[in-house]
Design a protein around this nucleic acid. Structure first.
Lengths: 199, 199
DNA sequence: GAAATTATTTAACAAATGATAAATAAGTAA
DNA sequence: TTACTTATTTATCATTTGTTAAATAATTTC
């Protein structure tokens, strides 16, 4: 079991690759972004974003995984997972300068690239290529969000679990089932039943 | 009943207001966008987008309502409603130049503003203000998508119905319940039960 | 307006999921 | 290792939602 984990463990995701995957930039523009980015590390369990706070940065994951969750009544509900290469953004914050409704918790020791939102906003107004990079960034996040939405609306819990297993095996291997159940919109008891039924 | 419908019927949404609400533009940039837009009309029932086709335009709704739906097995599932002021976009198309998976059907006689995607993409590369306008456009769509996602994941069907009633009363008054049930992720029988239970 | 069509509600039973509690398994720390 | 804590599974029963069919209501067409 531990061997499988090791085999599937993703490598570090380098900054250049993250930036280029969103939208290829000529080096002048790319350097403007890179100059604004610093690397940081936090241990497993660190709360990177707090609900009801205005966060001043967005991040990209070099190494590790994270989850975003919010509260419904007393219950903590996970609605997002991020792994190597993924951005960590509080959308209400990033887009509207409003307080976010989510906490972001690091589920492993993480290495992150940090980018101050204010600096990025400034670059959007100064460099058309970076403005288009920012446009593509949100477009891709939107595609992901829509896929997720349709998966929730169209598929049964069992189908959603199988899809997660298929598309993001590393999440299931690295994250505890409580969080996965909540991400799938079901209880952890229900997820256990589903796992038993598909064997 | 008909009187209530009339009272709540929204007015025409003018193009300037739609553009400005996304991101205020100086008149030079705004005119570049407006020059690329033409008005069109289609009758109720018209299929504006076809699944598995590459659509060449995006639209904004001046007057009327529309829905997007896709098929899961044999079942048609509505996952989006648009009303006056809303954009009609096939995301896979707009973002990735890929075939969309959805049909878009007009649920009333509609007046639309049409904007050729290719022309808009060109403007993104030529005008930094329009690039940022396009960025804000996707950012706001992303916020809406995330809200929808969280509503699906966090709330019961009854809560989702009540929220729709609260936030988009015009949808419930103008759209048949079959579509609303499918949008809420439940059957129309189940929606009937919910409606009966909250009286 | 009457007939035909479509939309919505109601009823009865099946299947899936939730809630609670207890049992087992896995992981952590002394 | 052993004890302790946390995670996961299993069991039971209640609630919600799905499925199918029939009844009623609303809308459309002639």
């Amino acid at each position: 079991m531990i061997q499988i984990k090791k085999l599937l463990a993703p490598n570090y995701m380098e900054l250049d690759q993250i930036i280029d995957t969103i939208y290829p930039l000529a080096s002048a523009s790319k350097n403007l972004i890179k100059k604004s980015i610093v690397e940081t590390k936090f241990p497993k369990g660190h709360i990177l974003f707090r609900a009801n706070k205005i966060e001043k940065s967005i991040y990209f994951i070099k190494k590790g995984i994270a989850r975003a969750y919010a509260y419904s009544d007393e219950n903590e509900i996970t609605f997002w997972f991020g792994k190597e290469g993924d951005p960590i953004v509080s959308m209400q914050n990033y887009v509207n300068n409003k307080k976010g409704y989510e906490d972001v918790e690091l589920l492993e020791d993480c290495e992150l690239y940090e980018l101050k939102t204010e600096k990025l906003q400034q670059l959007f107004l100064e460099d058309i290529h970076i403005a288009n990079w920012g446009r593509k960034f949100s477009e891709f996040e939107l595609i992901k969000s829509e896929e997720r939405l349709i998966s929730l609306q169209f598929n049964t819990a069992t189908q959603r679990y199988l899809a997660l297993l298929e598309n993001y095996p590393s999440i299931i291997q690295r994250v505890q089932l409580t969080h996965i159940a909540s991400y799938l919109g079901i209880t952890q008891v229900s997820l256990s039943r589903i796992r038993a039924s598909i064997k």
